[in-house]
């Protein structure tokens, strides 16, 4: 065997190790579409309730008295989540088909499980915060837990997710001190950051 063959062997080994342990079909377009959905969701709240985005105290859902607002917010968030998931799955499935990799295999299941453990914990914790009338901290909680979920999931997919997770955590911590700017932080965290990272990943791996 000559050097070239040895090098090729090393490359093959590397690719096998990556392919077998990480879910590599995650598409940058999934991130972009999720970000766009989040932006639309936040804009809907701002426009429908006529809330100034850059002014303090624009989230009155600390108290249960604002029931129509809470109902709107919950339905809005649910619609954002569903449409973001559907679009993400679509683009990731498309990338997997292009790569000739299986879409639903053990690496995908491992990714989902590790993503959802911190995510579900964060969801339940957010509900507890609401229950104790501390709703102003919900934006911070959702961002921090989402960041930790991404950090955890990054071990099972493209490394880039790790940086996105850290960015979400930092943003969440800021928002914990700047209570009352929740919609703005959601717009940046779930909207803008997703679009930026999705774009970076798209140009890095799919162009």
């Amino acid at each position: 065997m000559n050097d070239k063959e040895h090098l090729q062997t090393l490359t093959e080994i590397r690719s096998l190790m990556e392919k077998s342990s990480r879910f590599l079909s995650l598409s940058g377009l999934s991130g972009i579409s999720a970000g766009v959905c989040a932006c639309v969701g936040v804009m809907a709240v701002i426009i429908y309730w006529d809330i100034p985005l850059f002014e303090h105290d624009h989230l009155p859902f600390v108290e249960l008295d604002y029931f129509p607002f809470i109902k709107f917010l919950v339905i809005d968030a649910f619609l954002v989540l569903v449409s973001a998931l559907v679009l993400s799955i679509y683009f990731t499935k498309r990338k997997a088909q292009k790569q000739g990799l299986p879409f639903w295999d053990k690496s995908a299941i491992r990714l989902i499980i590790n993503l959802f453990i911190p995510l579900v914990a964060g969801g339940v914790f957010s509900f507890a915060i609401f229950y104790h009338h501390l709703g102003g901290l919900i934006p911070a909680t959702t961002l921090i837990f989402y960041g930790m979920a991404l950090l955890n999931a990054s071990k099972y997919t493209l490394h880039d997710i790790r940086a996105l997770g850290i960015a979400e955590i930092i943003l969440g911590l800021f928002s914990a001190f700047l209570v009352g700017y929740g919609l703005l932080f959601w717009l940046i965290g779930f909207g803008v950051l997703h679009i930026i990272y999705g774009g970076i990943m798209y140009f890095k791996y799919e162009k």
Binding site: L16, M17, S20, S21, D105, K106
Partner: peptide, 18 residues
Amino acid sequence: RLGIMAILMVNEQVDFTQ
């Protein structure tokens, strides 16, 4: 054989089909 080993290095347990 080298490939099998590479896969088993990063996965605790792998079945035949995988």
